[in-house]
Design a protein around this nucleic acid. Structure first.
Lengths: 334, 334
DNA sequence: GTGAAAGCGCTAACAG
DNA sequence: CTGTTAGCGCTTTCAC
């Protein structure tokens, strides 16, 4: 099976040309006779020549490869993000090395190191945990351009593409209020990440604008898992008889919450309205089709990659901080 | 931002040593004095040395990188497969380059070429369309070991890891019959791929063993999309009043089928029982929690990678054809 | 124990 | 239009 691998040198010898001539001919660099180019191309094909991009990379100091670090690739939330990255990278002739950070700062740093010594041309962080000021020095030390996606860097010093969490949350809560709910519970994601605190900001803002006082008792926290959403909802159910609506910090929590509500023998949305955030795949086909805030996941991945690629080519100076407006998706659960 | 990148040479000069000595010291290759090793390590750290694995790859002719080609990475079905691959690759010090084949033979071949000239050490095909005999020559021409995963190669000449589609399907249909259903519709995936024809074999076998004659009128086809499942179910509903159960070739089709049934004002499972195949994420939280056949997706990805890695190291001779037994997951839809 | 030299396959000056 | 030369950063004989 191990085929003899053919190189430029072999082709050159076969044709009695120099390596340089062959290289130029194959790359269509010009300065080579038309007939020669043809002969070279034909011979390369006949000999089954496969360019060695490792050698090329060493020489040119570029790998045409991007590193994509996903905070936890077991969440299918990231599927469209990854897809967007992969696709636009491919369009520009780049490949991506996918790494999982397992929601762990040290593992994520390790991934950066590995990718850096594979000499990737750029790095994309999806929901990174290295978005804090304290990791800036580390990230910059490699001299590799990078972009944050889904979750922004804490300062605006780095490029990023995210959805407007405050606005998305505001839209949802405002809608819930305008359509009759007064007492809106909020099971937010319990992590000190700006994405989530921004969702809290939107929640408060919507209450305020509608003249509803904030009631701290309606605030709950959960990790972004079905189990945690389920548990949080059960605590809510145990605490009160009157629950107009529950706004969940993400769809996964909403799934757990809906389970708890159904299990308690209550109806969605008649007894309790449920809303989520993200619009994960199949959100329309859950127990009750879920009303949610749609993050443009694919687009975020795509734009992040494009920005990174532009930066690699030194296309712009200033920071690119892009905040996309999310959409409300109304379904049956509210 | 573009840091001056430090090489072995720089360290050598700094220390008045040879490049060779530094290289050996850093790799702990032995034959270097203990004190020297220490000095080298310290200096490397101080100078922020980052090994250049591109150069190493060129020299050693190995990249510690695997190519993973997914037939369509927009299906979140593949998320756990990718995860399994990534994780076990990482355990052995390998990274993966992820490519999407967009369910297209030509694009998939192109991906192979790209990965081959990036000199990946091995290739993993997830639900490949290049699994036919006619692509063997092409794949072998690169001299790169590869493994098929999820979908087998048509002959057993290549390594693969899949679930036992015949058995999974048999288990489900047998269960449906034994629990009272006689007239079981089958909406299979409409593609001429052995995975799907094997599911048909299991269906027939279960009928046969239970003494139920095959009725061709109960056989439907659909692409693996919600829309197609929905449409197929509507055709079934229009064709008959008596429908005991519907077995769907994959969960995504089942989702569509359930939508159609509910829309028709019928109840699941009281009026019609619905079963799927795959056990995708959140199958337990759909309209009606879905009874399905669980493919060990993560494990398939993991085992495939391990086999590939073993083969890269020349660990075995014979073909590795692994067929894992899937499990029945009983939920509320049946 | 340590170093010199060669070379992986390619591109990029610079000559001719 | 084509070839020579030099090296990218590393590992690997083979001497000393």
């Amino acid at each position: 099976m191990p085929k003899k691998v053919v190189t430029l040198k072999n082709i050159a010898e076969e044709l009695g040309l120099s390596i340089t001539a062959v290289s130029k001919a194959l790359r269509g660099e010009g300065g080579i006779g038309k007939d020669t180019v043809l002969r070279v191309q034909e011979t390369a094909k006949r000999m089954n020549y496969l360019p060695n991009s490792v050698a090329k990379s060493l020489r040119t100091n570029t790998t045409k490869t991007l590193g994509l670090i996903v905070s936890d690739s077991s969440f299918s939330f990231f599927t469209p993000v990854i897809e967007g990255v992969e696709k636009s990278a491919a369009e520009y002739g780049y490949n991506i090395i996918l790494c999982n950070a397992y929601s762990n700062v040290d593992k994520e740093r390790e991934a950066v190191r590995i990718l850096a010594n594979k000499r990737v041309d750029g790095l994309i962080f999806a929901a990174s945990m290295l978005n804090g000021e304290e990791h800036r020095g580390f990230l910059d030390s490699f001299g590799i351009p990078y972009v944050f996606v889904i979750r922004k860097s804490e300062t605006d010093e780095s490029d990023y593409v995210i959805n407007d969490n405050t606005n998305g949350s505001f839209q949802m809560v405002d809608y819930l209020i305008k359509t009759g709910s007064k007492k809106i519970y909020f099971i937010n994601i319990y992590e000190k990440i700006t994405s989530y605190s921004d969702r809290m900001v939107g929640y408060r803002k919507a209450l305020e604008e509608n003249g509803i006082p904030l009631d701290e008792h309606l605030l709950y926290g959960a990790k972004p898992t079905v189990e945690d959403g389920y548990a949080a909802m059960n605590r809510i159910l145990a605490s009160s008889q009157q629950i107009d609506a529950v706004f969940c910090g993400c769809d996964v929590i909403a799934i757990g919450a809906m389970e708890a509500i159904i299990e308690a023998g209550l109806r969605i949305p008649e007894d309790i309205r449920v809303a989520g955030y993200d619009d994960i795949e199949y959100a329309a086909y859950l127990r009750v089709p879920l009303t949610t805030v749609r993050q443009p996941k694919y687009k975020i991945g795509k734009m992040g990659t494009e920005i990174l690629l532009d930066r690699i080519q030194g296309k712009f100076e200033g920071r690119q901080n892009i905040i996309l407006r999310p959409d409300l998706v109304l379904r049956h659960s509210t």
